[in-house]
Design a protein around this nucleic acid. Structure first.
Lengths: 117, 117
DNA sequence: TAAGTATATTAGCAAATACTTATGAAGATT
DNA sequence: AATCTTCATAAGTATTTGCTAATATACTTA
């Protein structure tokens, strides 16, 4: 569960930035053969080109976007299967269905006796 | 859309930490009349009491947890309606259903002409 | 009301983040 | 091959974050 929470948090982290969310949405709206190069994204989102490259790196790290060169430009697009799996991951993380049995204080908790409200 | 992305990012941010995710999960598993006080949470998660208070503040800020005093302790619990609404929010944010029409470069984009790939 | 307990807040710190400017690397075009 | 153009990386900075230790606050209980 330790590692699980970290992996889940990593996905939430990658999406925990408004510019990155807008980036994802922009890419989502693109459909073949429309293209969005880095400069165009920078222009649309009002930040510098390196800023976009850095955001793209974060999104690539979780497999959410991919790039493909076309002439001078690199055409960035959403990995839609991964997008769906991320959607399921965040949804499942917040799903109460995964609630197991209630957990009490551990035996070695110094305040176990005080937990009786 | 500007503000929308910020609000969505705020929810992702609040959940973009493994300790906070574990906190949410722990509270999810609690069912009335079980109680988890701050000290018990600190003990279970292996961090200090102030750290828990601070995480709880973040979660309270988005309405995800609530506290209720019972004797000496404050019993923290999940706001399950809000949990569900957060689940819908993050899911919808990543849902391709909200994809509108493809968007080109703005007219004033200095690199509009270069976007033809 | 005074003492006791749990929780919140503050101060301080190290690490991470989001950005810009400047520079480097990769590939396309001629 | 030389030149261009795009994109990535590096360097530098201001802000935010997650933590601990110390302190203050709020409430209960006697």
């Amino acid at each position: 569960m330790q590692r699980e929470a970290e992996q889940q948090a990593a996905v939430f982290s990658a999406l925990a930035d408004p510019t990155r969310l807008k980036l994802v949405k922009l890419l989502c709206r693109q459909h073949f053969p429309d293209a969005l190069c880095v400069k165009a994204l920078a222009c649309l989102l009002g930040v510098s080109q390196p800023a976009i490259s850095q955001h793209l790196r974060v999104l690539k790290a979780i497999g959410l976007v991919k790039g493909e060169r076309r002439g001078y430009h690199i055409h960035y697009y959403i990995n839609r299967e991964r997008l769906e799996s991320c959607r399921e991951l965040v949804s499942a993380t917040l799903s109460m269905a995964e609630s197991g049995k209630a957990q009490g204080c551990q035996d070695d908790c110094p305040d176990r006796r005080k937990q009786d409200v």
